[in-house]
Each structure stands twice: as C-alpha cells, then as structure tokens.
Write a protein that binds this DNA or RNA. Structure first.
Length: 175
DNA sequence: ACGATGATGAAC
DNA sequence: TTCATCATCGTA
C-alpha cells in the first residue's frame, strides 16, 4: 500500500522532513510506465539565515519557489550542466527546501536528474501524480540508527558555522 | 587535479 | 554589460 506525500508531509520543520524522506520513494512517470526509486540521500537548506541556502541573499527570480508553499519542486541549473532537484518545505514565506542527492541505484544530484530526465520544466509545480513526479510512502521505515548525518557537500562558501551543519542525511547502507 | 559549460546575481 | 561564482561530474 502506497501513499502519495502531499503538503501535509512537507509543511513541517525541514530537518524533520529531510530525515523522514529517507526510505520514501521518488516516482517518475514516463508514458504509461512509472519508475519508483527509494530515496537514499538528501540535504536540507533551512531558512534565509542558512548561509548555504540560495535564499540567504533574499528572494530572486531563481529562488522564489523556495519562498512559496511546501510540496512544490524547486529545480535549478548549476555548473552549466546539471539540474538539481529539490522539494520545498515549511510554511509559505519561509524559504526552505531539500535537495535530493541520491536514490536507489543513482548516487549524486546531477546524475539523478540526468538519468531520470528531470528538468526545470517541473520547477514551481506541485509534487503530484498530475505533474508526473511525486513521492510515495510505501511503508518502509528507516530507523534513526540506520541514518548517517554529515555536513553538506560543496557549500564551503557558507562560512565555518553553516558549512559544518550536519544537514546531509544518508541511509547507512547506501553511503 | 582540472576542465566542461551556461545561468545567476552583483558590481560597474 | 561584464565578471566571478557555482548545492557537480567525468576524465586523468
């Protein structure tokens, strides 16, 4: 039995959602087929005060969906090559999102979007069946003891404090 | 260790 | 309008 995750799930503290997103399934529909892969690695970007977050310098054309309601995709293009897939969390007006860094069999945020053909076309759209890209709870529970937390990757610019925050969550058996 | 490759945002 | 930077990855 599987349940589609909605605003109800994402409209909570970002770190809580990040931890609970491990073990859930990212589902992408292509034609008649649905591909479901378990989420194994994520990173939280939490609030305008988070110096590693795009939202730290205020709202811009790129990051505006982070400031909106939760349960919405935030996809941006970086390094001239890669789309990064995020899901917006927290209440409207509070800029936060979770970067999906890895799913079963695909490690790395750039590889993930490339392999699943996820582009900025879904930016600002709801994570739902209608969009063709969503999350499901398929009953798998990841125990706290089976989760590793580390600093986030590639955020040296955030300064010593924020670069070291343990906002990256990985399923131990997938690290 | 480094280059690919282009959008972004801040400075000018 | 220019310019440094970038929530990365493949090749070496």
């Amino acid at each position: 039995m599987s349940k589609i995750l909605t605003n109800r799930f994402f409209n909570r503290p970002t770190l809580t959602v990040a931890r609970e997103l491990l073990g859930k399934f990212l589902v992408v529909r292509r034609g008649k087929k649905e591909i479901a892969l378990m989420v194994t690695e994520v990173e939280a970007y939490d609030g305008h005060y988070d110096k590693a977050s795009h939202a730290h310098r205020g709202e811009t054309a790129r990051n505006k969906v982070m400031f909106g309601g939760s349960g919405v995709w935030y996809v941006y293009f970086v390094y001239g090559m890669y789309n990064m897939l995020n899901i917006v969390t927290g209440r409207e007006g509070f800029p936060a999102a979770i970067l999906i860094r890895g799913v079963e069999g695909v490690v790395g945020p750039g590889r993930l979007t490339k392999k699943l053909k996820i582009t900025r076309a879904v930016n600002g759209k709801e994570a739902s069946r209608k969009t063709g890209l969503w999350f499901e709870d398929r009953g798998i529970q990841i125990k706290k003891a089976d989760i590793v937390r580390t600093p986030r990757v590639g955020v040296h610019y955030a300064g010593p404090v924020w670069a070291k925050k343990p906002y990256r969550f990985i399923i131990k058996s997938h690290q």
